[in-house]
């Protein structure tokens, strides 16, 4: 097992009496790109802010690059790139002033050429004032400012929120650029599963403040499977399958989504239940995530047939 660069131990945060993050135990190994997934309000930003030492945990703690998050030294912070949600930058500064300001925190490691190349690529000039930039341009400046010091660990809180497809792609290119240099580690939260699938090799899923998955992308892709089972007549009323998280039936078809259940178990169950066919169907990462974190309620939100009657 390679070195752990990010670790949380029963990390817990309460806001008044409401838990935002509960007993989170995470281990992010060096050299991976980790997608940090969770629905709105799941506790992603709270977790990231605690990792960066900006928020004090109620219980438990976390360490970054071997140092307790609450006592991060300037030397440790120099090795971390942190992109906050919404790309907040000082509005009164020009891009050139921002660079000067930022590089002062990273003596001897600022890659001025990379910064200039990125600005040129984004068609931005150092004379432009931050307050006159669009959301997308602010995101581009923020990416350039974060990559220029060549961070060992990059933590990004929903960096592509509200950005157009082209700028989103630039972010992904930035991630791949950084990861193809040796031993860089990246953690980023996002709601765009197609992006996560492209660049991440590891994923962490939290739901209602609790850890639901911390594994490689491949393990997650293999763990959640959907089967479509065909019966001669009506589907059985009682579906008792190991690891089932989601189950729908329509006439003689039964659709079951399972977590960590061997295919043979499902095939055997289907046979015993009198099914005529049992097929494994491939799911998209998005479907897997939805069924994993938001098991279907009875009925649908919009039931058109009912309304048409």
């Amino acid at each position: 097992m390679s070195e752990i660069v990010l670790q949380t131990e029963s990390l817990t945060k309460y806001f008044k009496d409401k838990p935002a993050v509960e007993h989170l135990n995470l281990k992010i190994p060096k050299g991976c790109v980790c997608g940090f997934l969770g629905r709105n309000g799941a506790g992603k930003t709270t977790t990231i802010r605690m990792m960066m030492g900006l928020l004090r945990p109620t219980v438990g703690g976390c360490s970054v690059l071997g140092c307790d998050s609450q006592f991060l030294t300037p030397q440790i912070r120099q090795r971390i790139g942190y992109v906050t949600e919404g790309h907040r930058l000082y509005k009164w500064m020009k891009i050139g002033e921002l660079e000067k300001f930022q590089r002062a925190f990273f003596p001897g490691q600022w890659d001025g050429k990379l910064f200039n190349d990125m600005l040129e690529y984004f068609e931005l000039s150092k004379k432009q004032k931050v307050k006159n930039l669009s959301n997308g341009q602010r995101a581009q400046v923020s990416l350039a400012l974060t990559l220029a010091p060549n961070p060992e660990l990059l933590i990004m809180d929903d960096p592509t929120l509200g950005l157009d497809v082209a700028i989103r792609r630039q972010f992904l290119e930035g991630v791949i650029h950084l990861i193809t240099r040796q031993n860089r580690t990246i953690l980023f939260s996002s709601h765009i599963l197609a992006d996560v699938e492209r660049v991440a090799d590891r994923i962490v899923v939290i739901d209602k403040g609790m850890l639901k998955a911390d594994c490689t992308m491949e393990q997650f892709r293999n763990a959640i499977q959907k089967f479509v089972i065909t019966f001669d007549k009506q589907t059985p009323a009682d579906v008792n399958v190991e690891g089932a998280i989601c189950c729908r039936s329509d006439g003689n078809l039964l659709e079951i989504t399972v977590v960590n259940t061997a295919e043979q178990i499902i095939q055997d169950w289907a046979k015993n239940a009198g099914a005529t066919d049992c097929k494994l169907v491939q799911m998209t990462l998005e479907d897997q995530f939805i069924e994993f974190t938001a098991p279907a309620k009875k009925g649908k939100l919009f039931d058109w047939e009912y309304k048409c009657q």
């Binding site: 790109v33 992904l172 290119e173 650029h177 990861i179 193809t180 660049v199 991440a200 992308m217």
Partner: peptide
């Protein structure tokens, strides 16, 4: 591997 990963914008491990 790294060149293709960078061209396709996918993780090098993939």
């Amino acid at each position: 591997v790294r060149k293709l990963a960078s061209d396709l914008v996918v993780n090098p491990n993939t």
